Amino acid sequence: MNLDHLRVQIDSLDSEIVRLLNERINVVLEIGEEKKKAGAEVYVPSRERAVFDKIRSLNSGPLPDEAAHAIYREIMSAALALETEMKIAYLGPEATFTHQAARNKFGVSVDYIATSTIGEVFDCVQNRSADYGVVPVENSTEGAVTHTFDQFATTPLKICAEAYLPISLTLLSDQPSNEVNLIFSKQEVFGQCRSWLTANMPNVKLSPVESTTKAVKLALETPGAAAIASVMASDMYDVDVLAENIQDMQGNTTRFLIIGQEYSAPTGCDKTSIVFGVKHKVGALYDALSVFKTDNINMTKIESRPSRNKAWEYYFFVDIDGHVEQPEVKRALDELQEHCTLMTILGSYPKAEI
């Protein structure tokens, strides 16, 4: 076959792909109408998980699974945008890692609302100026994002999905590295690349700011300054990359939660998050947590936060394997409630791939 003939084949395949994509969108719009009649949520994490799993099982290559996932992410993003004017609130500004995680989860076709605090993300979803929110909850190097846990202690919102984002930190500046005497970034980011900075920039002043995006803007305005941020920020603000992958741990990953009005239906591979408080007595927490061992349920995370109602009392945030609709999970949570002064199910949702 010559090149011209192969290009004719490509043109024919493209015509068929476009036709089928529009046919798929028309079916999605019909589904959207049925959801509206039933008052159901437009975004369904359990169905999203099923679609991605199906695509992976159908894909026999040579297209990599990651590429197929990315393509279908944008197909579904376009469909969501046509079904409704979907708005996603996130901890901004643009080009932060939370923005990147939100884009990875919902694609480029929906609308995004940047907020300046985690609390504002919750407010946007609660007052329905946004359909969903994306907030960081923990980093594999620096640990928990306590502001997110504190918000969950007082909100009726639910966790409906989660996402993991590998954090690749980049040194950005429009000046040569040997002229840099000041670096802007978030305090947590400095912690994630402490060894690299000690080895490569030992005498450079570090200036913490509230976001990596603000760090880039300040670096562009300040002589002799650089910023540590994402490659996405480099593209968005047209600033040079001086060094890539400067994080101390190459597996550095941040977990994000997607919050909405309802939690997800079971998929068979789920996680449930709860918050509870126990009586102030000897063995109270041990007795509460023992229900998970009794019912053979794996607890994957526990985090404590001070109660805002009384000094020296704490709430406990726990993740367990399974969905609240599974009999053994429901039984364990019913048993847990007997040991608690309060207990709230924050959400059951599909496990994200790490």
Score class of each variant (00 low, 15 high):
N2V: 12
N2H: 09
D4H: 10
H5Y: 14
L6E: 13
Q9L: 11
L13C: 14
V18E: 02
R19H: 07
N22D: 02
N22L: 00
V27Y: 00
V28A: 06
E30P: 03
E33H: 09
K36T: 13
K37R: 03
G39L: 08
E41A: 13
Y43I: 14
V44D: 08
P45Q: 05
V51Y: 03
K54W: 03
P62L: 05
D65A: 07
A68E: 10
A68Y: 10
R73F: 07
I75G: 02
A79W: 04
A89N: 01
L91P: 03
P93Q: 11
E94K: 11
A95M: 13
T96G: 15
R103P: 05
K105I: 14
S109D: 08
I113E: 14
V121T: 10
D123Y: 01
V125R: 03
N127W: 01
D131I: 15
Y132K: 07
Y132V: 12
G133Q: 06
V137I: 12
N139E: 00
E142K: 05
T148N: 08
Q151E: 04
I159L: 06
C160W: 02
S168D: 10
L171F: 02
Q175C: 06
Q175H: 08
E179V: 06
V180P: 05
N181T: 11
L182F: 02
F184W: 03
G191M: 04
S195E: 02
W196F: 04
L197F: 01
L197Y: 00
A199Q: 08
S207Y: 05
T213W: 07
A215S: 10
L220K: 15
P223A: 07
V231K: 13
V239I: 14
A243T: 02
N245A: 02
N245M: 00
D248N: 13
M249I: 12
M249L: 12
Q250W: 05
I259Q: 03
Q261T: 11
Y263H: 01
S264K: 04
S264I: 06
A265F: 04
P266Y: 00
T272F: 01
V282W: 00
F292G: 07
T294Q: 11
N296H: 04
E303Q: 12
E303L: 13
S304F: 06
P306D: 02
R308M: 09
A311R: 13
W312M: 12
E313L: 09
Y314P: 09
V318G: 04
D321H: 07
E325F: 03
A332W: 03
L333Q: 10
E335L: 15
Q337T: 15
C340S: 09
G347C: 04
S348I: 14
S348Y: 07
K351L: 15
A352P: 15
A352F: 14
